[in-house]
Amino acid sequence: MTKRDLIDEIVRLHPTFSRRDAEVVVNSVFESMTEALCGGDRIEIRGFGSFVVKQRKAREGRNPKTGEIVAVAAKRVPFFKVGKELRLRVDGGEDGEGHSAGGENGNAEVETAPRAAAYPART
């Protein structure tokens, strides 16, 4: 799905909006989010996830081709953490392969422990 498909879907769901209106809203949403992140603000969309900006220190890197040492400048990188509702919805498919509710190891006891280990609490 691309941004254009998203706009089409909005028009279909909200017939009172023109395509132009839907375009403006969708663009405004992502522009507003970008602005918030630029200002160092954290975005939290309940049921979806949160976006934060992390600071990366300057470091010495290497050109993997030549092995040369290059200076990598300090930078800010956007980071997304999926929210609980969406995390569960994404993982909750119906084919047993590759999701935690099914498979050979899918007994209830095993399930809670690995989840806790895979998503350690962060401070």
């Binding site: 997304f80 969406l86 993982d91 590759g98 999701h99 935690s100 498979g103 895979a118």
Partner: peptide, 11 residues
């Protein structure tokens, strides 16, 4: 422990 297979979302 065995960490079960899962489907994850990345941005």
């Amino acid at each position: 422990i065995v960490i079960s297979g899962r489907r994850v979302l990345t941005f």
